[in-house]
Every structure is written in C-alpha cells, then in structure tokens.
C-alpha cells in the first residue's frame, strides 16, 4: 500500500502536480487541500507569508478527519524554490506507528495519572 504522497499546491491549495498514490486521482482534481485538511486551512495564510528560512514546517502524527485519508499522517510543507506562490506538501501515512506510540503513552500516562490522583486535591493537608 502506498505510504506517501507529494503534492505541489497552488496559492489556493489546489493540486498542480502529484507524485504517489495515497489519494485517488479524481479526488485531487476537485479538492483544495485546504478543505481536506483543516490543519492546513487554519495556517494557510501564515504559511504563504512565512519567510523562506522558516521552512520546512512539519506536523507529526496529524489525526486526520479526512473522508478518504482516515488515520494518522506526518505533514511536511516546503516552499517551492523560485515560486513563493507554491508550496510542496508531503503527506506520509503513519497510522501504525501512531497506534504503537499511543499504546506506549497510554500505559505511561495512565500510571502517572493514577499516582497523581492519589495525591488528590489542592486543599492544604
């Protein structure tokens, strides 16, 4: 199963070029990635105005509410050299890794939570 997709996006977030096969082709023709990933939409203007030296911008383990891409993804945004109006988005599937990590953290946090609950209350003793 393909694990990665690289997309060149226009200023509006539409796909200009695609490599990889995470998305079905027809999906790429009709959707802005801004609509697909609220995480990108919420920072899009900031990304377009970001100085070149602050790229790449990476978000690890994004829990996607996407109708086609369910699961967890690492998203990395690069500026396209020579074009400040285009961004290169790499979407890497990491659902299995995320579930493993969640399992480990769940155990760790539950143990810590139990310990802290035993030290309950803000009241002075």
């Amino acid at each position: 199963m393909p694990q990665q997709q690289i997309l060149i996006l226009s200023r509006q977030g539409y796909t200009l070029q695609a490599d990889g096969a995470l998305f079905p082709r027809h999906w790429l023709l009709h959707h802005s990635m801004r609509d697909d990933f609220p995480i990108l939409d919420s920072i899009w203007e900031t990304l377009m105005a970001l100085p070149a030296d602050q790229f790449p911008v990476q978000f690890r383990f994004v829990d996607s509410p996407h109708p086609v891409l369910n699961g967890y993804y690492h998203l990395t945004v690069h500026m396209v050299p020579g074009s400040s109006a285009r961004l290169r988005l790499t979407i890497e599937r990491c659902t299995f890794e995320a579930l493993q990590l969640r399992k480990a953290l769940q155990l760790k946090n539950t143990a810590a939570l139990y310990q802290q609950q035993r030290e309950f209350t803000f009241l002075p003793r």
Binding site: F61, D63, P65, R102
Partner: peptide
C-alpha cells in the same frame, strides 16, 4: 481516558454579532 497523539484539528462555525466565525 485515551491519550492524544500528535494533533487533531477540527472546526465549528459560531455566530458573533450576526456574523459567522470559524473557530479552528
């Protein structure tokens, strides 16, 4: 209790003074 991994983003549109605002 289910530990959150990484980040989850979603939005809700609310109305403020008659105007819609999307809180992401």
């Amino acid at each position: 209790y289910l530990t959150t991994i990484g980040v989850k983003v979603d939005k809700r549109v609310v109305e403020v003074s008659g105007e819609p605002l999307s809180l992401i």
